[in-house]
Write a protein that binds this DNA or RNA. Structure first.
Lengths: 151, 151
DNA sequence: GCGATTCATTTGAATGATTCAAAAAAAGCG
DNA sequence: CGCTTTTTTTGAATCATTCAAATGAATCGC
């Protein structure tokens, strides 16, 4: 993300342009699905005085303005992403917490309409797929079966 | 839930039968989707000395044994339910946090298979529907439009 | 460009859900 | 009934997140 991209996004959202805000946007480009803590760690590499509290403030404002989206998988700390407005979903690794995006299945909006809505007016269907990522499959395989079996 | 039901469930799961454990099972029958705190409040009505810590311990053990399931919608505290093993999903009210069950759409397992699994081996698809429950629709309507419009 | 006003950031502390740890009590086995 | 293992209690710790007051910076009108 270029400096002017971030500036334009902030202006467009009616937010003041500040260094911490630009830095958080830039960090999120390189670290999709990062936690506040991880974003902070990245931001302080260029702006050493930015506090974690500021990162929380910035993420609150960005999310409130629709520039970022927060996801809260299970009991993990919240993660943030730049990809907004396309209602995509997530794969979460149960072992290492890696997260990757998955597009919503197109054609029949599969999960947006439950059988019975019990009178609820729905505005979002959130889908989280839990499983083992490739790396963790390998790691678990090694741990439980260090010598590849030939059977 | 009768006393012998709870006892049988615990025995069947290989867990020792204790009063707090039976009381938590009974509480969950009357309070589906209750938080640890809410379960505790119910349990102490019959067993005043049971601590919140014990409720957490019990819920950990019950969930570990498959007698209960925990759900963690967004940043809400965890909720617990007796209904296990049928992979149902939940409607959560964004205003009052009410939760109701919805069955998985039958016939085509809609959400269990994303388009691309990115190499993940999946073992669960969790679907959370966010919206306004009936009561909160009424309450919001009243607040924003106290005199029903005739237009 | 400059100053006033509004909004952002910092610092330090508080909160709330949950977990850890050690000691006391109870469950289940023989 | 007594022994061993597991559970419960008590009290404190942890972690992500939020609150609040004071300082500092960004924008608007001139």
């Amino acid at each position: 993300m270029t400096l002017s991209d971030a500036t334009g996004l902030l202006r467009g959202a009616g937010l003041r342009v500040t260094e911490p805000r630009r830095a958080v946007l830039e960090a999120l480009e390189g670290l999709p699905h990062a936690s506040a803590d991880a974003i902070h760690a990245q931001v302080v590499r260029t702006l050493p005085d930015v506090s974690l509290q500021t990162v929380y403030n910035v993420l609150r404002d960005l999310t409130g303005s629709g520039l970022t989206r927060s996801i809260e998988p299970g009991d993990h700390p919240a993660r943030y992403e730049l990809r907004v407005g396309d209602n995509h979903h997530h794969l979460v690794c149960t072992r290492c917490s890696a997260i990757v995006d998955v597009d919503c299945v197109v054609g029949h909006a599969p999960c947006l309409t439950p059988n019975e809505s019990h009178g609820f007016v729905l505005n979002e269907a959130e889908v989280t797929f839990w499983g083992l990522c490739l790396d963790c499959q390998a790691a678990v395989g090694l741990a439980s079966d260090p010598v590849p079996s030939t059977h």
